[in-house]
Amino acid sequence: MPPRTSAARCARRRSRSRGGRGGGCGPAGVGSLRSSRGTGCPSVVSGFGPKAARLAGRIGDGFVTMTPDADLVGAFRHGGGEGKKVVGGVKVCWSSNREKAVDVVHRLWPTELLPGELAQILPTPAHFEQASKLVTRDMVADAVTCGDDAEEHVETVLAYARAGFDGVLSAVETPKDAARVAASLAPARTGRSSAIYAEGSPGGASTHHSCRAGQTTGRGR
């Protein structure tokens, strides 16, 4: 049995157990899996390539990935993911001062732009800190949506909708930023067929965009 499949099945068994903690599915202190409290916790599988997407379709209750890649969505669907949700994730930074926003992303999330497979194979936070020195401020400015241009933020989300995603979770710096993003994007979404609402969580800095067709309301809190 391939290691990834074995680990995923182990995770699903644990998610269905009641109140279990720890166990024999991985080396202690490195990446121990813990079960949820209760039963029936959905397993949404993360993946970044076609093999992982097909595996997610076969064994998962959903699929999450970070790039608006229609081919990955197709691989997930063909692998058994028909009727299951596909969720994207993207980092943005909302600020009236774009240069400040770029600085924030470079300080908080340089690991988003690590080259190759580094983000998948580095074992400890110390290794991530070392590798993050490879990421320059210019790389952030070119790759991450920063500033207060509502159209630019909307286009960032719509890329996922066009690729067939069901929703996008965009991380922002603070809960207040999440509310500002939600309020500011509502007018820019008028007449669009996707990304109907943005919801800023008061307990965390995130904005959720649902990629449903035919509705264009906005909400932030």
Rank of each mutant, 00 (worst) to 15 (best):
Pro2Gln: 04
Arg4Leu: 02
Thr5Ser: 09
Ser6Gln: 11
Ser6Lys: 13
Cys10Trp: 10
Arg12Val: 05
Ser15Ile: 01
Ser17Arg: 06
Arg18Ser: 00
Gly24His: 14
Gly24Ser: 01
Cys25His: 10
Gly26Leu: 12
Gly26Ser: 14
Ala28Trp: 08
Ala28Cys: 05
Gly29Ala: 02
Ser32Ile: 07
Gly40Asp: 08
Ser46Val: 08
Gly47Phe: 08
Gly49His: 12
Leu55Phe: 03
Gly57Thr: 04
Arg58Val: 02
Gly60Phe: 10
Val64Met: 12
Thr65Gln: 01
Gly80Asp: 00
Gly81Lys: 13
Glu82Tyr: 13
Glu82Ile: 10
Val86His: 02
Val87Met: 01
Gly89Asn: 10
Val92Ala: 09
Val92Ser: 08
Ser95Gln: 12
Asn97Gln: 12
Glu99Phe: 09
Val105Leu: 01
His106Leu: 03
His106Arg: 02
Leu108Asn: 13
Glu112Lys: 09
Glu112Leu: 10
Leu114Phe: 05
Leu114Gln: 11
Glu117His: 15
Ala119Pro: 01
Ile121Gln: 13
Leu122His: 12
Pro125Ser: 02
Ala126Phe: 13
Thr136Glu: 04
Asp142Pro: 08
Gly147Met: 01
Asp149His: 01
Ala150Glu: 03
Ala161Asn: 04
Arg162Glu: 06
Ala163His: 04
Gly164His: 09
Gly164Ala: 08
Asp166Ala: 06
Glu173Lys: 10
Thr174Gln: 02
Thr174Ser: 08
Asp177Ile: 01
Asp177Gly: 15
Arg180Thr: 15
Val181Gly: 15
Val181Phe: 10
Val181Asn: 15
Ala183Ile: 00
Ala183Leu: 12
Gly191Asn: 05
Ser193His: 09
Ser194Met: 04
Ala195Pro: 15
Glu199His: 09
Gly204Lys: 15
Gly204Gln: 11
Ala205Met: 03
Ala205Arg: 10
Thr207His: 13
His208Arg: 11
Thr217Met: 08
Gly218Arg: 02
Arg219Asp: 10
